[in-house]
Design a protein around this nucleic acid. Sequence first.
DNA 1: AGAGATTGCTAACACCGTTAACTTTCGGGA
DNA 2: TCCCGAAAGTTAACGGTGTTAGCAATCTCT
Lengths: 242, 242
Amino acid sequence: MPSTPGTPTGRRRHRVREEALTEILNTGRRLLVEEGPAAVTLRAIAREMGMTAPGLYRYYAAHRDLIQALASSLYDELATALAAARDRHPASEPGRQLGAVCRELRRWALAHPQEFGLLFAKPLTDADTAPGAAAHDPSWRFGGVVLDLMVQLWHHGNIKPPADLDPAWTVQLEEVREHLSGEPVPLEVIYVFVSCWARLYGAVAVEVFGHLDFALTDPAPLFDHTVRDILTALGEPRTAPR
Amino acid sequence: MPSTPGTPTGRRRHRVREEALTEILNTGRRLLVEEGPAAVTLRAIAREMGMTAPGLYRYYAAHRDLIQALASSLYDELATALAAARDRHPASEPGRQLGAVCRELRRWALAHPQEFGLLFAKPLTDADTAPGAAAHDPSWRFGGVVLDLMVQLWHHGNIKPPADLDPAWTVQLEEVREHLSGEPVPLEVIYVFVSCWARLYGAVAVEVFGHLDFALTDPAPLFDHTVRDILTALGEPRTAPR
DNA sequence: AGAGATTGCTAACACCGTTAACTTTCGGGA
DNA sequence: TCCCGAAAGTTAACGGTGTTAGCAATCTCT
């Protein structure tokens, strides 16, 4: 009974297994979208696929692993969407690229609120995947698109970092820098990156979770203002909204 | 079988019922904190209280209602904590008061991550409490503390609102203004309020849900910077961090 | 062709929300 | 004082959930 069930040897077996895995995830996602997170259940997925629940244990060791795999695939889809938005603008204009990526993040999240909710609110619900610092791979694929663009923006623009950088951060920020394709980005600049990242992610989350409904029917202009602020903080003078 | 079960006539009966209601909520909260949201179950609460699950239906018509009551009580506790932080500074300095309230919000959320997660991530999970615009009472008790302070800050300071206010917002913002004790706050200023509120709430959520763990062990300085930005946007020149 | 891995099944267990029907307890009016 | 009705709590039961054990079938490779 392997924790990651059977790894087939044959070529054909491998292919049909891949198809089953993606069908499981697709079915789970459909249930998530149509009936909410509580409906993403082993028995429901199996029912929709015309099989029984214990059969799914040949693909995922537990319900938690299935949800985690679903979240991981959603991170991938989001990262792909962000990269596509980035590539709709020339690489010579990283400011426009980052603006487009920010708006694409909001668009994707609002178009797929259940999926975004799963990604954003998952770590707290679990509270078990917090041993070291290597478990954040799936979320990095998605955040990396934004951070890499910030690095490009740092090359082109002129960021004015704050001089008062808490020395206790250096160790952590060094670790972030290693993920940045070995670019020699100053730690103060990485601090600005993290600050902008937090502001972007928070703005999207607050809106998706409906915490602005009490005041605004269409918070798009507010978000555009936030994006302008972020680009300004990253030293991009030309604030291109569209 | 009333939707809101029995309303006792006697004085003593009323008292013991109140005690039972609070004990249910306390037990539910303990389970939430100790074993996560999935453990807040009718049977578990009844077990901890030495009774059986159907007995709880004398107090809450369904599991959803119990969770909703728990969230409501948490909103109250948070609002009380924010008000206490506000009152630790003189009313003549609303800037210091708002700064203290912002930091208290972060402190409370980090000290009670499961509770904050229930409040922040609940509306999306439900997706049923969205008929009109009167269901946001519990969250308003908590956000009202912040918004009222922003009004005070507007009286004392000098907010520079942006001139380009989307006309489509006026209707919504008018509705917000009615909640503000009838203060004649300009709509542009209310827009600034909402903007600052979104930034504050988002900054706390991003940190509580662990989306800054990849970079920072102690995001407190980052949050302080955010609070300074917010106070500046609200026209408070003296940025008092402590 | 046969051995071994892989896949899916049924049966079963404990837990969950919820309902129905019953018993007990308690407060207030005759 | 007594009694009646409301309130509180019980047991039994239904369908749903994750999960495990054990078994049958199927496919792949030698």
